[in-house]
Nucleic acid binder design. Structure first.
Lengths: 240, 240
DNA sequence: GCGGATTGAAGTGTTGACATTTGAACGGTC
DNA sequence: GACCGTTCAAATGTCAACACTTCAATCCGC
């Protein structure tokens, strides 16, 4: 059940462990529980604002409340859930404005990642990146998953913390938002034009240019999201 | 019930609770424990690489292992400690190179914060910022605390997530590093020159310029840290 | 004397049980 | 009929106890 990387996640080489169905005393149930809840949230199965009922989750995941609480604390720190003292934990509920605000963080961090990656990526990695880009052009759309154009660049920066922030924390949030906000769903289809310029900058090992191109790209994505949102909120133009 | 947003959101007056000295069954011991450990780590009392002994901490903090484990999970998520499956938790141990790498994240995020702050800070906040700057000049050194020049700008961006990353997570790490790495201690003394240019850009509401100035400033701080590190590692020049 | 198996204590991971709190249905009063 | 206090089941916060693992000192065989 955990391995549910639905569609999106690209050609993940069945990263999920074989996992015997009957497991006794494996230790570290926290990880399994955490993964299950994160997956539930980011896939949209658990909606934003939903309450995480301790005993119920406990039963459903086949674990006692101890590890469950530890997992929820980790989620709280990751700011995926919000806990109120004696009332329990709820999946965090972002306003559209807050989601938009995140694009600025992404712009800053991914821009820096590109700057660093232009210096640190190996020639092989850059060749792979070109391959991904050409696949996008051939296919006519971007992929958006764990082997995404963006993620490859971030990984190429060889900066664990940056990678963690963008490819783990932020990716989870983005999956959750795309599952719950319709106005975020479209927007990346015509990205390969920007991608080409980013790719070329990296191929030329021009970090400053790569950063600039990434920032423009993400600015464009943000503006498109804002535009989608505006249209969705004022649909009365249709009738008049 | 929704109004009970504790923490981040908003300028809640008199944030610190009076807190009776004798507390019985208050609930939420986790917070107290977490704060105690974070303080121990960032003040240098608990050294990087040190092991967090469950039972011992349990006794010292007067709490059972349940809440303690929850606090440790939060620290793990915050990447202040690293847990290995059956061996326990250790305070994370960064190499000098990893510390240096962090300056790039800070550069990206604080730059963006300044860009946003130039747009969103109130005139009053900008006036306060100037006051802080003039205090630095008069005093001849920067302060570096919770009312720091940098933190004020970040707060002025009105971006909770950004604020959290820079003024909480990153600040804790920085405190820890300064307590443990001598070569990080000096570096901010002659910052007010940069600060002046940042301040002026913000006063002119020029976000792009403010971002550029902040990025140059932090680049300078990084280069100075690198220089300090280099000198500390090759002290043999003294003799020859 | 030294290398490797053994044993034991300490520590980690998990569980079930207990006190306290919430919040929501219920009934009473104006 | 609306508002307020009471009551009670469910959920939360905490704790002590129970398996299992690790690690280090010990002991045995060579």
């Amino acid at each position: 059940m955990d391995s549910g990387d639905r569609g999106d996640s690209g050609p993940s080489a069945r990263a999920a462990a074989p996992e015997p169905l009957v497991r006794r005393r494996m230790g570290r149930e926290v990880e399994r529980v955490l993964e299950a809840i994160v997956d539930g949230i980011s896939s949209g199965a658990i909606r934003p604002g939903a309450k995480l009922n301790g005993p119920e989750l406990s039963r459903r995941l086949g674990v006692s409340r101890g590890p469950l609480r530890e997992a929820i604390r980790r989620l709280e720190e990751r700011q995926l859930v919000q806990c109120t003292p004696n009332a329990g934990a709820r999946v965090v509920l972002h306003s559209a404005e807050e989601v938009i605000q995140f694009f600025y963080v992404r712009e800053a961090l991914e821009g820096m990642a590109a700057r660093l990656a232009a210096r640190t990526m190996t020639d092989g990695e850059i060749a792979d990146l070109r391959e991904i880009y050409e696949g996008e052009v051939a296919r006519g759309r971007t992929l958006g998953g764990r082997n995404d154009f963006h993620m490859r660049i971030v990984r190429g920066a060889y900066h664990p913390r940056l990678s963690r922030m963008l490819n783990e924390d932020f990716y989870t949030l983005y999956r959750m938002w795309r599952a719950n906000f319709e106005w975020l769903r479209n927007g990346g289809e015509r990205s390969w034009n920007d991608h080409r310029r980013i790719l070329e900058a990296i191929e030329q090992r021009d970090g400053e240019l790569a950063e600039l191109m990434v920032r423009r790209h993400i600015t464009r994505l943000r503006e498109q999201a804002e535009e989608n949102l505006r249209r969705m909120r004022e649909p009365r133009l249709v009738g008049t």
